[in-house]
Computed example of a mutant assay.
Amino acid sequence: MSDTIFRPESARGLIPDHLQPTTYVLHVEDLMLMAAIGFHSHELDKRQRVLVNLDIELEKAVLPTNDDINADFWNYDYIHQTLSELVEKRRFNLQETLAQEIYDLIAARAHVRRIKVFVRKPDAYQDCQSVGVSLSNFPN
């Protein structure tokens, strides 16, 4: 057996069509933001932790074809910076509103096919892990 399979730089052209990727999904898990969120009296004068999870399916055509950082690709810094700025600049009464704002920011970008946004507050209650809301156009 050839050792070609063990050299990743040589394997790219050997992958059969049926094993080629059919989707390109970026994931962000538990991005912690300190948000002014909530409408209860104890929530109005402080920021609280919000965890954001994203699944962003992109058109396969934008999948990077090499390791060149000067090529056109989705930069996680955009997501991190944009969401950080979003919660710094305004107050949200509802998690649903924050989730919709995040959804809209991602959906407005080029090459996006599907999005799932899951926003949760881990410190809302002591007797549960978190409470949250998700928005998605992924099929069930």
Rank of each mutant, 00 (worst) to 15 (best):
I69D: 13
D68A: 07
E101H: 06
D45A: 15
H42M: 05
L94Q: 11
T82V: 09
R49F: 09
I56W: 01
I79G: 03
E29H: 13
L44A: 11
T97Y: 04
E101T: 03
T65N: 12
T82W: 06
A61N: 12
E101Q: 08
E59H: 11
Y76K: 08
D45V: 08
R91H: 15
G38E: 02
F73I: 04
D68C: 06
I69F: 08
N53P: 06
N66E: 12
L44K: 14
A71T: 10
N53M: 10
I106W: 00
F92L: 03
F39M: 13
Y78F: 15
D55I: 00
V87Y: 01
A71P: 07
E85K: 11
D45G: 15
L83Y: 01
S84H: 06
A71G: 11
N75M: 10
A71D: 15
K60F: 07
D72H: 14
Q48W: 05
N70F: 13
Y78V: 10
Y76C: 09
E88P: 03
L94I: 06
L54M: 10
R90G: 05
A36Y: 04
H42A: 07
A99S: 11
D104K: 08
L44M: 13
S41A: 14
Q95H: 10
Q48V: 08
D104L: 09
G38M: 02
V62N: 04
R91V: 09
V52G: 00
V62Y: 08
Y76W: 09
K89R: 11
A99W: 01
K46R: 14
L83E: 00
T82Y: 06
T97L: 04
A61L: 11
K89G: 09
I102M: 04
T65Y: 07
R90V: 04
A61C: 08
L86W: 02
K89M: 05
D68E: 07
H40M: 04
F39W: 11
N93E: 10
M32D: 13
E101L: 02
E59L: 10
G38C: 08
L63P: 01
